[in-house]
Design a protein around this nucleic acid. Structure first.
Lengths: 223, 223
DNA sequence: ACCTGAACACCGTTCAAGT
DNA sequence: ACCTGAACACCGTTCAAGT
């Protein structure tokens, strides 16, 4: 089934290389080698590396299954975002690949369509529904980008992943207290919270905001 | 003043190269050339390119001035985020450089200290203040990353920047209406809103959520 | 229509050698 | 202490040539 050299096969091969070698190791030559082919061959199917990364971006969303369509919309969208986060986290450097890329691939379209449908059903206006999806996906992407950053840093410096947070705490505590009183005093509060807790905090803020917005929409419609 | 080859001078040179050539054109050799020096020389001051990018990340925040410390905290933080956004937008590929990088440079520390101070004064707990800054900066970064993406795409494809949004709208409208009813029907609502409007929408959601959170904190404290 | 060999102009990084 | 020349092992991309 992998015999044919197609765009889909190239995307899957790129994914395997990314998982194994990271973004820095993702070269046209290695993706080609993964497919037992020479680098130049890829250029028949793909304009350049940018386009290959676009294919890879949609490929990375392949496993994404929407949460069950039951219960309050708020719970559904919390799940949506947690799933999105876990998916990105599950592949090395995934957020860096996806971030800053404008792709309307089949998986993106499928997920977007489903989200918009649920938001409309919940009572959001078309404009608010569209804007809500932008907000949520940007937040998830920005947050996972931050979350995967220390891991990348740990790789280059050779330090362990968990130690990075502790090291950050140390660094903050060691700052001059005259110029950075808050950073010193709040060192634990800053470096302490686990990544998932940080993620959930902001997520609930956005969901709170959306709920208020929906309430106002309904009140206006009732007039 | 630029005679000495220091880490600060290297960071400034990297910024100039980034603005002129973009992230793809930012090579050790070009940064070195910008300083009338050979690439190998940089390695005396900097471990590797990753570390140079870390320096550049903090350098990119150099011009960031906090908004005046007056009026409601909510207005102050709206301004903070708008400033942060404009700053990133003002340098080509800035979001891609900053994103996914864990840097506690002088500028980051200075801005973070100031933000935490204002949040504490507004009545947030240390934990909530720390979490709020994570949420806001992740959101800004994720959003600007999206915003700079079409520009990057326009460069490689040769299309104009404004046309990209229109093209996205066209693409959505042209989708099969049976499988993507919402994407087709809402094509305008999705591709229409200007970038700053999209940014402000999500920003107000987060600020709404923070306001609620603060109200609850105060209610609990009053008991 | 699809793949390859060979080449071009670049990379990041190292290290012995210079001053 | 700081910079360079020269080299190494890679890159992305092109294109004439093969089948």
């Amino acid at each position: 089934m992998d015999g044919a050299l197609t765009r889909a096969a190239i995307a899957r091969a790129a994914r395997r290389v990314l998982e194994r070698e990271g973004l820095a190791g993702l070269s046209m030559r290695r993706v080609a080698a993964e497919l037992d082919v020479k680098a130049a061959s890829l250029y028949w199917h793909v304009r350049n590396k940018e386009e290959l990364l676009d294919l890879l971006t949609d490929e990375l969303l392949t496993g994404a299954e929407p949460p069950p369509r039951e219960g309050p919309w708020r719970d559904q969208f919390r799940e949506y975002c947690l799933i999105h986060r876990r998916l990105l986290l599950s592949v090395r450097d995934a957020a860096k690949v996806v971030g800053g890329r404008f792709v309307l691939g089949p998986n993106v379209l499928r997920l977007l369509e489903e989200q918009l449908d649920r938001l409309r059903e919940a009572g959001f206006t078309p404009e608010d529904a569209a804007l809500a999806t932008y907000t949520l996906s940007s937040y998830v992407q920005g947050m996972v980008l931050q979350e995967q950053a220390p891991l990348a840093a740990a790789e280059t410096t050779g330090t362990g992943r968990g130690e990075i947070a502790a090291a950050a705490g140390e660094q903050l505590r060691g700052l001059p207290a005259e110029t950075f009183p808050n950073l010193v005093a709040m060192a634990d509060a800053i470096s302490g919270p686990a990544m998932e807790a940080r993620f959930r905090f902001g997520l609930e803020l956005v969901l709170d905001g959306l709920e208020e917005r929906l309430a106002r929409t309904r009140a206006a419609a009732a007039d």
